[in-house]
Amino acid sequence: MRVGGWQRLWGRRVVLGIPYVWLVAFFLVPLLIVGKISISEIAQAVPPYEPLLEFAEGGLVAVRATFTNFTLLFEDDLYVTAYFQSLTIAGISTIFCLLIGYPMALAIARAREDRRGPLLLLVILPFWTSFLIRVYAWMGILKDEGLLNGLLLWLGVINEPLVILNTDTAVYIGIIYSYLPFMVLPLYATLEKLDPALLEAAADLGAKPLRAFWSVTLPLSVPGIVAGSLLVFVPAVGEYVIPDLLGGGDTQMLGKALWDMFALNRDWPSAAALAVVMLAALAVPIALFQKWQTKLEQAEDEV
């Protein structure tokens, strides 16, 4: 039995060790390196940054850390604008996703039980098809000589094509469209569990459907609202493809700014500093998400 116990302990270590080592090596360490390079000096070299530690003569170690990458970010209007514009665009898109997604989730949750599966499948299906190609389809709809303008001109609503592509409006449409399924799924998960008896009780006590919604359904679906909003908001802040394809020259978002700084300017330390700033902005929402995950896990353990 002793041997068996030892084997189990050893097996346990292997099972735990493999994914743990992978996550540390290919997720945690890379993030720490971003932190390190964000305080390194830029250099005309390959790779384009100075080492943080220099081994001077006599075994002395000289630390060459600098915070200029960060101060430059806050002095440059471009990045300050990008910062606030990212948060605004992500925030407003999240609200729109909630406004469109909530009634959808509620309608699916209240559909006949055998219809819920197919209806939900229809929400998930677009998520499985190429994100890039779905965003691209909007280019054909929104451009000046695109389908929407053609339709509106034909109907006589407008006389001149509207400029929608390459504006913030197109970015909003793209983000709401792409992230809508992420809002509907967690909302549906909480609304589906809602006990219909609660609503019946409210109705018996004389509450009109709207009143019952405000005082029963909505408060009980808060966990779904929080989860859905985070799943939309956090990735939307760092979105790069949508502003690049649908946005215009004055649409500045952090994800795109980071890529431009990295690829066009080859300024890796500043790109790393921008990543650190972005993480700082998202730390609270990400922590909230983690807390929600843990809660979910506890709920699962109790089942």
Binding site: L16, L23, P30, P235, G238, E239, Y240, L282, I286, F289
Partner: peptide
């Protein structure tokens, strides 16, 4: 461990990409 597993789900892709490249 729990944090490391869940974080890539919500981490913006640009940060993940930059971190891995560096």
């Amino acid at each position: 461990f729990n944090g490391l597993i869940a974080a890539p789900l919500v981490m913006p892709e640009v940060i993940l990409g930059l971190a891995l490249l560096l």
